[in-house]
């Protein structure tokens, strides 16, 4: 199945902004992070379809996964 992966801020360095990823059933967010060689501690915020998600949440076909390092402002 296919999911849309979006990276932001420093996670883009040497990688990409947005990419379609082919994944197996029962793939967790943490598996996708590993697939792109992103150190786990660099990911602070995970959203699936714009909602808060845990690293062990399982992705569904057509999901958008957005990953952020620690960011702030105001």
């Amino acid at each position: 199945m296919e999911v849309n992966v979006k990276l932001f801020a420093t996670l883009r360095d040497g990688r990409f902004k947005e990419e379609k990823a082919n994944i197996n059933e029962n793939t967790q967010i943490s598996d996708v992070i590993s697939k792109y060689n992103i150190p786990r501690e660099e990911v602070k915020i995970c959203l699936i379809n714009g909602r808060d998600a845990d690293l062990n949440q399982i992705l569904k076909n057509g999901d958008t996964l957005s990953l952020f390092p620690p960011v702030g402002g105001g």
């Binding site: 801020a9 714009g50 960011v71 702030g72």
Partner: peptide, 11 residues
């Protein structure tokens, strides 16, 4: 602070 555009947009 403008790093927030994308995260608020995604959320």
């Amino acid at each position: 602070t403008n790093v927030l555009v994308n995260i608020l947009n995604e959320a």
